[in-house]
Design a protein around this nucleic acid. Structure first.
Lengths: 205, 205
DNA sequence: CGCTCATCTGAACATCATCAAGTTTCATGG
DNA sequence: CCATGAAACTTGATGATGTTCAGATGAGCG
């Protein structure tokens, strides 16, 4: 459940060198998930870590920069979550490729619904101010790109269809997740809609 | 460009009855578009209208409620913008239905790209706290629902395909708009992708 | 003319982001 | 082993912010 950002080794210890930067990001992520990015205060985050508010300014230019890191973390965790579900299914056959594809879609939406605030901040303006975030060329979610390659290679998808399908698929997935989060699409219809997407996009059973 | 929310009739006039509530929402919308919802201050909005900060509390429970109204306004303006583009094309023939369908998609994305901050706040948690916002049954964007009906009626789309296609189409549209806004899909690829979506969703030329 | 009520103001409070200056801690080289 | 300097953190302060509340103000009604 936790990721690359670690809490300090020993609690209660005086910090100074125990990688405060990561600890702050970690606490900020937690706080964002609790109350949403718009209600997070720098001071509360610092207090949770047991440090004075100004300490944060030795690691981040301002509050927005901290939230930018949270956004990057959110994107990262999303990729991790999707990858984990996909890689839990051994690759190889065409059937496997399809199962992995399906798992990716479900994992994407599941992540959004189980970490709503983190998902939201990951696609907020905060992550725009952030360098090193996966952009277009990188593919918004590289895992998905790889999955489509697998599908094509194992014959589960027509190669000619692939290129445009990638962005469309990613967009649909993201839209479903967002609208479901917003309550504009009932969450229980999502699996059915995902199946429909598969069919439309040209995944051959 | 402006919508149902009006500025007071005469500038410089003492308010007191000139519909402060609407004026505040209007100013808040402007402020959101300038600096983004996360950087809007209640005080600045009040000042822009020429009123003391506390006056706002006679019309809104708190700042979040004001931003909730802004979110609702954003959704409303989105619907208006899409409707306007669609209705600029006279209905009737099958070809017209298709053109209208295409116009709707383009209008949706255009609105997102030209009013990024307003679009974002419209699909933020703020509008969840808001009653009377179009939800599932209403259809997230009712215009789109009507458009699909037209397509089916004029033979531009198979009726059997329609039902699931609606949510998928809306989701894809929304995903495209969101990711384009985020820079995760190049804006200049959007028209091409919209065409692809049309084809996938089963619009018959 | 005077009453009343919703509307708005003023001043106040707690909290917030941010910064300048001081203080602690640590690693390092003599 | 200890002085030295840089980096990490704290203290204290400043101005802006959200929010509250007691009162002023003005409109409409009797």
């Amino acid at each position: 459940m936790s990721t690359s950002v670690q809490a300090p080794e020993q609690a209660g210890r005086a910090y100074h060198h125990g990688d405060l930067r990561s600890a702050l990001v970690c606490a900020a992520v937690a706080r964002v998930e609790e109350v949403g990015a718009e209600h997070v205060s720098l001071r509360a985050v610092a207090a949770e870590v047991g440090v004075s508010p100004s300490a944060a300014y030795h690691h981040f230019a301002d509050k927005d920069a901290l939230l930018g890191e949270v956004a990057a973390q959110g994107l990262h965790q999303l990729v991790i979550a999707v990858s984990a579900e996909v890689e839990a299914i051994p690759a190889g056959s065409r059937e496997a490729a399809m199962l992995r594809f399906r798992a990716a879609g479900q994992a994407y939406v599941s992540f959004a619904l189980s970490h709503p605030q983190l998902f939201r901040v990951a696609f907020s303006p905060y992550c725009l101010e952030q360098p090193g975030v996966p952009t277009t060329d990188d593919g918004s979610v590289p895992v998905l790109s790889a999955l489509l390659n697998d599908l094509v290679n194992t014959g589960g998808m027509n190669a000619a269809v692939r290129d445009d399908s990638e962005d469309v698929f990613v967009a649909t997935l993201h839209g479903l997740a967002t609208l479901a989060l917003q309550g504009m699409i009932p969450a229980d219809r999502v699996p059915q809609l995902l199946a429909k997407v598969e069919q439309l996009i040209g995944v051959n059973p």
